[in-house]
Design a protein around this nucleic acid. Structure first.
Length: 490
RNA sequence: GGGCUGUUAGCUCAAUGGUAGAGCAACUGACUCUUAAUCAGUAGGUUGAAGGUUCGAGCCCUUCACAGCCCA
């Protein structure tokens, strides 16, 4: 649509001209906003009907409703997800009443006036001064139904935030969750670091990377799929506890749980093993629930209530898979496991480890309701993880599941350089067999390991997914402000 | 990648193959405690795009674009 040809836009441009004739700047430079609407509500919510506070406020917000009645009128202004009523009277405002009459829904306005309650008990500001702070030229989405068009919600998030309070609150919660996580990490002595997003060799996860090109150096660079190998270099360098709240990029499919760019928290602590990391992860989530949600949060997934009780259950992947499927997984060889997956009508996995994970996804994941730590993954699909101290064929790794969704992934980090070399070689072999998600030999990281890395517990948490769980969002797009979209048609 | 569904006014939605409508928003007027204000009136459309079938297409067919859901 051509903005300039729209009738409503033309009408509002005409109003701009009229304001200019009245010597009014519809786009002034600043406004001294004394009170927020939230504070006004907290402070004067207790007033009785028709009671006046005697308090003179100065506030601002977007005009979202207007009900004129001749020589007086009501309106509502929105300040974040809070709103408050304003009452404008010609006998109070005098000439400024004309400005109120010309105001459109969507305009930013600044007002001064006295706080009181109407006879129907609505907290209201009797307006003494009315100023336009920014004229809105396009009409907002419909006031009652809000913005429903899912495509518009994602493409024009600002309209979603203006008209859908629930959405606004989810993103507010998201920042509070992240703030609470940082506070917890600080309290445990972690320091926040930044490592390269542009990497010469993508590592630390099984995923296809985005490839880009550096002109001056004339070389390929990859957007990171994980910061893991750099954070471990910092543990080698002597930082004992580090974390990075990082944006990762994976060139893969998109669905309810996947966006090509997503936010991950990775933490590494020297001298810890994965048992320590489980305690630490529980502590983090408990802190977030306490600080952001007042200690309890109702989690509902697919219509089911998910109880949140600490500590979380810890179950072994192979034990649980054998139990639920009735198969004796430990005694099955690679071919048997792979053909079992094929029997289920799924694509043939490329390794024993992947086969076990597929079977786990099929048999166990749907029944995982409560938060649970799944421990001890197959060695083939965990090349950066220490072998289990007492069990054959598995590594010291866990994933945290909420309602069947993977939230976190953590290891006792492999720190034996010679074994790490062998594991990379195993991955290279898988890559040669056509697994383009297999990890790559990283000689520079191997060299770093040769200098010695202390025993280390590492953790990755999918921040978007954690926010989804805690806010009952149905798709990852509801917790990412600007999710990846195909380019709009001309 | 496959299947299904959707795309109509700024927004939310209607419309047996037969003159594209409503509510909100907008515009004009009335109204000094309204709150989805009310009342009277006005205006607003290349029905996602391009073809096709038909006397006649928002509706049927084909292709394309974008989106959603399910499956892989």
């Amino acid at each position: 649509m051509n903005t300039e040809e729209d009738g409503i836009v033309q009408g509002r441009i005409e109003k701009l001209r009229e304001l200019k004739e009245m010597n009014i700047d519809a786009f002034p430079y600043r406004w001294e906003k004394k009170d927020g609407v939230k504070e006004l509500r907290e402070r004067f919510g207790h007033l009785k009907e028709e009671e006046e506070s005697g308090y003179s406020t100065c506030t601002a917000g977007r005009l979202i409703g207007k009900r004129r009645q001749g020589k007086a009128g009501f309106g509502n202004i929105a300040d974040g997800s809070e709103k408050i009523q304003i009452y404008c009277r010609q006998d109070v405002l005098g000439d400024s009443y004309e400005i109120f009459k010309k105001a459109d829904i969507g305009d930013f306005i600044g007002i001064t006036g006295n706080v009181f309650k109407t006879k129907t008990g609505e907290l209201t500001i009797l307006v003494k001064g009315f100023s336009v702070l920014a004229k809105s030229l396009k009409p907002l989405p419909e006031k009652w139904h809000g913005l429903k068009d899912i495509e518009l919600i994602y493409r024009k998030r600002y309209l979603d935030l203006i008209s859908n309070g629930d959405s606004f609150d989810i993103f507010l919660k998201r920042t509070k969750i992240i703030k609470s996580i940082r506070k917890y990490l600080d309290s445990k002595g972690f320091i926040e670091v930044e490592t390269p997003i542009l990497q010469t060799l993508p590592g630390g996860a099984d995923a296809r990377p985005f490839v880009t090109h550096h002109n001056a150096l004339d070389m390929e660079l990859y957007l990171r799929i994980a910061p893991e190998l750099y954070l471990k270099r910092l543990i080698i360098g002597g930082f004992e506890r580090v974390y990075e709240l990082n944006r990762n990029f994976r060139n893969e499919g998109m669905d309810k749980n996947h966006n090509p760019e997503f936010t991950m928290l990775e933490t590494y602590a020297a001298y810890w093993d994965y048992n320590d990391v489980m305690d630490f992860t529980e502590g983090m989530i408990k802190t977030v629930v306490d600080e952001v949600f007042g200690g309890t949060v109702d989690i509902v997934r697919d219509g089911r209530q998910i109880p949140l009780s600490f500590p979380f259950k810890r179950i072994s992947m192979l034990d649980e898979l054998s139990k639920v499927s009735g198969l004796d997984i430990a005694s099955m060889n690679e071919d048997e496991l792979i053909s079992k997956v094929k029997e289920l009508g799924k694509e043939a996995p490329r390794s024993k480890g992947k086969a076990i994970e597929k079977l786990f996804e099929h048999y166990v994941e749907p029944s995982l309701n409560k938060p649970v730590f799944i421990t001890d993954f197959p060695i083939e699909s965990s090349p950066l993880t220490k072998k289990h101290r007492s069990r054959e064929g598995v590594v010291e790794r866990f994933e945290l599941y909420f309602a069947g969704m993977e939230i976190a992934n953590a290891y006792s980090e492999l720190n034996d350089p010679l074994e790490q070399k062998e594991r990379f070689e195993m991955q290279e072999a898988l890559r040669t067999k056509g697994d383009d998600e297999a990890q790559r030999m990283d000689e520079d990281f191997l060299e770093a390991l040769h200098y010695g890395m202390p025993p280390t517990g590492g953790l990755g948490i999918g921040v978007d997914r954690l926010v989804m769980i805690l806010t009952n969002a149905k798709t990852i797009r509801d917790v990412i402000l600007f999710p990846t979209m195909r380019k709009e048609a001309e």
